[in-house]
Structures are given as structure tokens and as C-alpha cells.
């Protein structure tokens, strides 16, 4: 087994373009996941049985099904239900709603951590619900939810490697192409593992910085 660094450099542009796709797909999917999770957690808090049940079902399905199956349902099953999406869109939507199931639980724990009396005080003053969420609940739960959220974004980034299976030209897909063209195995995979490691260390660092910033504020 020998390591030919030249191959990696020759395929540098391909790897970098894959890296870029991975980064922006993951960024968009993470945003969608946070939004979907927040929405589900808020709906879960409403006093309607049916809504609660629907949210529970959404959360359990997302958490109990492999992301690969969800991607296949969207990508291959979508067209027969009249929903034809680009692979990359499927990736963002699929990863986003999948992650939403996990973020919903993170937010739910966050909302539960705020004493209900604080919300009652706000309601008595006529403060509207959106302002209660944005100005009273979320600022207080940041220290609690940032660490698991960071972790969730990391998991989501790792899961994004699966988008290669539905032909999205992200990091893993481009690496596979490199393997197929060069017949080299060691170099591409070592390179790709290092790149993922870098992205993930970057997310962990950013999450840590956020955490420090908000724990100082409170």
C-alpha cells in the first residue's frame, strides 16, 4: 500500500467542488431542520390533541426511519405521487425534514425548561405569542439547546454523504468518481475522510464559540 499524493492534487478541483456542494447543502438543510423542528415543537405545545398527535407522528417517523429510505421515497417515489424534484433539492428537503424530527425534541426540551409562570406573566401583559417565543423563551434556552444543536448539525453533515447515492455531486460522490477514474482507493478515501473531519471540527468549533458567547451573556 503506497500513498500517491499527486492523485489528490490532480483531483483537487473535483474534491473542492464536492466539498462546496456538501457545505451549502448541509447549511440549507440545517436551516430547514431548525425551522421544521421549531415549528413542530411550537405546534406540539398547542392545546389540540390532533395537532399534538400529528407532531408526535412526524417526530417518531423521522427518528425511526433510515434517512436513506426517506431520500428514496422522495427521489424515486416522489414522481409517482406527482412530485418530481432535482436530486439536490431532494437532498436538502430530505435532510432538512429528517433533522427537523431531532431538532423538534431539542426545542421541546428547551421550551420545557422555562417556568410556565414566566409565560403567564407575559400573557398578562398582553405580549403576543411570537414575541414571547422570540424575546423570552428562546434567549433563555440558548445555553441549553446550542450543544445538542451543534451535535445535530454534525450528524446531519455526516448523513449528507448519503446524497451521493441519489447522485448529488457532493464530496462522497466526487470521491467515488475519483476512485472509478484512477483505480486508486487509499488516496481518495483518506483525503475525503480528512475533509469531512475538517468540516466537522469546524462546526464543533463554531458551536463551542456560540456556546461560550451565550453562556457569558446569561
Amino acid at each position: 500500500m503506497s500513498f500517491d499524493i499527486d492523485i489528490v492534487f490532480r483531483y483537487g478541483p473535483l474534491l473542492l467542488s464536492g466539498l462546496w456542494t456538501t457545505v451549502y447543502v448541509c447549511a440549507l438543510a440545517s436551516l430547514l431542520a431548525v425551522a421544521a423542528g421549531l415549528a413542530a415543537a411550537l405546534l406540539y405545545g398547542l392545546p389540540f390533541r390532533a395537532v399534538k398527535l400529528l407532531c408526535r407522528a412526524y417526530i417518531e417517523i423521522m427518528r425511526g426511519t433510515p434517512i436513506l429510505i426517506l431520500l428514496f421515497i422522495l427521489y424515486y417515489g416522489g414522481p409517482s405521487a406527482g412530485l418530481t424534484l432535482e436530486a439536490e433539492t431532494v437532498g436538502i428537503v430530505g435532510l432538512g425534514f429528517y433533522g427537523g424530527g431531532y431538532f423538534a425534541e431539542i426545542f421541546r426540551a428547551g421550551f420545557q425548561s422555562i417556568p410556565p409562570g414566566q409565560i403567564e406573566a407575559a400573557r398578562m401583559l398582553g405580549i403576543p405569542r411570537p414575541a414571547i417565543v422570540a424575546r423570552i423563551q428562546i434567549p433563555q434556552m440558548l445555553t441549553l439547546i446550542i450543544p445538542p444543536s451543534t451535535n445535530q448539525v454534525i450528524i446531519l453533515t455526516k448523513e449528507s454523504a448519503l446524497l451521493s447515492i441519489i447522485t448529488v455531486a457532493e464530496l462522497t460522490k466526487n470521491t467515488t468518481q475519483m476512485v472509478n477514474e484512477t483505480f486508486a482507493v487509499v488516496e481518495p478515501y483518506v483525503a475525503v475522510a480528512l475533509l469531512y473531519w475538517l468540516i466537522i471540527e469546524g462546526i464543533a468549533l463554531a458551536g463551542g464559540a456560540l456556546e461560550r458567547r451565550f453562556s457569558r451573556a446569561s
Binding site: K158, E159, A161, Y189, Y196, W197
Partner: peptide, 19 residues
């Protein structure tokens, strides 16, 4: 813990024959 499990799987699958 820091790399995608798909990449790990491919590495094991392709590297075992190499060694």
C-alpha cells in the same frame, strides 16, 4: 465519530482487499 459512516463502509470494503 467524525467521519460519515458511508465513507467508513467504503474504506473498509475497498481497503481490506488492498491489504
Amino acid at each position: 465519530r467524525g467521519t460519515p459512516i458511508l465513507v467508513q463502509l467504503l474504506i473498509v470494503f475497498y481497503l481490506l482487499p488492498e491489504i
